[in-house]
Amino acid sequence: MVQQLSPLTIENELLYPDSDGKPLADNTIQLRLIFTIKGGLDALFKDRDDVFIAADLLWYPVQLTQSEIRAQKKPKKQAPDVMVVFGRPKGDRGSYKQWEEDNVAPQVAFEILSPGNRKKDMETKFKFYQEHGIEEYYLYNPKKNHLQGWLRRGKKLEEISQMEGWISPLLGIRFTTSEGELALFHPDGERFIEFVEAIEQRDRERLEKYLEKQRADRAEAIAEEERKKNQQLRDRLIQLGIDPESLP
């Protein structure tokens, strides 16, 4: 059975497409950092159902009016490398249409600079984030190992003067570039790690548990063998008429 799409659905798909045709990342460094940040934030807020986190998801802050549609005006949009939205449920989305999300704007945005990012494009993004409610904005340049951050003060995003060791007011995570690359740390001090590192860590923990069990089983086997030998000795002494308790 072929599902018939309503005119409204078709119109929404045309007006607010789920893709801008651009790649998620221009290089492996950018992609790795995006995944590490996204994965770390997912882990940080895994027990909270009211925190939505996305990577490279189109965000439409304002719905077009009918007059704007007739004038063929294009909706405003941006796709942060990573964005965090407090107050919205987890779940899959094709895009983030703010008017369908109780008009809750994302509060935190991360951008990882790539060679394909032009200065004009980054200025456009900054103005967009400033205009549409981002409260914390972080921009990292891997090539220069340079991190910048901005915090909302009223209607403007003001640059954070010292980013080394900075702790995000909303996320509670700590930033550093002292290791030669951007590193983020959970409130408990644990570093954000890549997926492969997480698997390796899991495998190490499994191996350690296995070896610990092997050692415990071996120690128990040795102790049981010793108990059997002692019992056999006691039994032999009793057969000889000697009280084992009388021996020194």
Rank of each mutant, 00 (worst) to 15 (best):
Q3W: 09
L5W: 08
L5S: 09
P7Q: 13
I10R: 02
I10E: 03
E11C: 08
L14W: 01
P17D: 04
S19T: 11
S19E: 13
G21R: 05
L31K: 05
R32D: 13
T36L: 10
K38I: 01
D42Q: 14
A43M: 09
R48E: 10
D49Q: 14
D50W: 05
D56Q: 12
Q63A: 12
R70H: 08
P75I: 02
K76L: 15
A79L: 04
P80Q: 14
P80K: 15
D81K: 02
V84P: 02
R88L: 10
K90P: 07
D92K: 07
R93V: 05
D102G: 08
D102K: 13
N103D: 07
V104A: 03
Q107F: 03
V108Q: 01
A109W: 01
N117L: 03
K119G: 03
K119C: 04
K120G: 06
D121Y: 01
E123K: 09
E123P: 00
T124W: 00
T124I: 00
K125L: 00
Q130V: 14
Y138R: 07
L139P: 02
N141D: 11
N145C: 15
H146G: 05
L147F: 05
K156D: 09
L157Q: 01
I160F: 06
W166L: 13
I167R: 13
S168M: 04
I173G: 06
S178K: 09
E179T: 15
E181V: 13
L184K: 10
L184P: 10
H186W: 11
G189I: 01
I193Y: 02
V196G: 05
E197G: 08
E197A: 09
E197R: 02
E200A: 04
L207F: 05
E208V: 09
L211W: 04
R215V: 12
A221N: 00
K228Y: 07
K229Q: 14
Q232F: 12
D235Q: 15
D235K: 15
L240C: 09
L240D: 11
I242V: 15
P248H: 03
